[in-house]
């Protein structure tokens, strides 16, 4: 994914190359329901094989964005193209996408194999080809042994894998996965994410992954868009987003008998603007950095805390940075909005 605005200064050749590589191009999509704007001015591009995370708290507009991009809902304004096919040709767009909706229901009276065959037929496969596609996909998602079992007997994890298989029946160029690991145990989550990476890596399918689980995004996605109340509040690589929540505080645990000496040393440490020793557990100290200083000394900033303590002959029993994770960036960006 490349934020659309980044193309402005690129050379013509680079632009052409990027355009050739872009499978989904979204240009200022908005969707309103009466007076409520669910998605506002969403723009991005996705390349083949890329996994893009779509993050946001509940009600941020993630599901609405996916429904617009999968032609279930028409946009109020803006446009998008999928491999050059404009959104005004929804059937052509649907031919090229796969979707695992957030609230995907399954016909419980069918077997997994029958379900996949049915959807393969709806995408235009012949009966014979649909059988082959279903068998191949069931193997790919690890459900071959349960192919003829009724879906009603499947676990939630198996149903989600079946949903991913359904999203693949038409060999899509882009797959939208809306909360694919919701309600799964850690093993089930790992299976789904492994499947997602395989699909992107081996097929070159672009994947838009909407999730609440930030660990998943860090582990799986190369780029991220964070939505809040329908607006894009951040976009970029995971590393770029994490950098926005660079650690501003550090907590050090020192021997209680050396508490006062440690406090004095920290107050004199470079870049530390304040030290809080009000922690109920004596021996824990929290140092807060001066923002301007930290921006200039980002790499070495945290070392100053440890160095000041060791220079004062205070052993550091434990040390924690607060911030610097994707979850910190997410909270920082979405809190108070």
């Amino acid at each position: 994914m490349r934020p659309t605005g980044e193309h402005g200064g690129a050379a013509a050749g680079t632009i052409e190359s990027a355009a050739a590589q872009t499978v989904l191009k979204v240009d200022r999509i908005s969707k309103s329901f009466g007076p409520t704007t669910a998605v506002r001015d969403l723009s991005f591009e996705v390349s083949p094989g890329e996994i893009m995370g779509l993050l946001g708290p509940n009600g941020a507009g993630k599901t609405t964005a996916i429904r617009v991009l999968s032609t279930i809902l028409p946009p109020t304004s803006g446009s998008f193209t999928l491999s050059g096919t404009p959104y005004t040709q929804p059937r052509e767009v649907r031919r090229q996408i796969g979707v695992l909706p957030e609230s995907a229901g399954y016909p419980l009276q069918l077997s997994g194999e029958e379900f996949l065959r049915y959807h393969a037929r709806l995408f235009g496969h012949t009966a014979r080809a649909a059988r082959e596609v279903a068998a191949s996909l069931l193997s790919e998602v690890g459900l071959t042994e349960r192919a003829s079992s009724l879906i009603s007997t499947y676990s939630r994890g198996m149903r989600q894998r079946l949903g991913v298989a359904r999203a693949l029946v038409n060999a899509p160029r882009v797959i939208f996965l809306d909360e694919p690991t919701l309600g799964l145990d850690p093993a089930g989550q790992r299976q789904i994410l492994g499947l997602v990476r395989d699909v992107a890596g081996e097929r070159g399918t672009a994947i838009i992954l909407s999730t609440h689980f930030l660990d998943e995004v860090e582990e799986t996605c190369s780029r991220v868009i964070i939505l809040n109340r329908g607006e894009v509040i951040a976009e970029g690589s995971v590393a770029e987003i994490k950098r926005r929540a660079a650690p501003r505080t550090a907590r050090a645990h020192v021997p209680p008998e050396l508490h006062e000496r440690a406090l004095s040393a920290l107050k004199q440490a470079s870049g530390v603007s304040s030290v809080d020793s009000s922690d109920n557990q004596r021996g824990w100290l929290t140092a807060t950095f001066d923002s301007a200083w930290l921006d200039e000394h980002r790499e070495a900033g945290m070392n100053s805390v440890i160095r000041s303590l060791t220079d004062a002959d205070v052993p550091v029993l434990s040390f924690e940075l607060e911030g610097g994770r994707l979850s910190d960036a997410f909270l920082l960006l979405t809190e108070g909005r």
Binding site: G124, H125, S136, E140, V169, N170, A171, D198, E202
Partner: peptide, 19 residues
């Protein structure tokens, strides 16, 4: 779970005009 080769994936591409 088994992986899928690109040629197999291409075979899955349905006809452009299903009816």
């Amino acid at each position: 779970m088994t992986s899928l080769s690109r040629s197999e994936a291409d075979l899955r591409t349905p006809p452009t005009q299903p009816s």
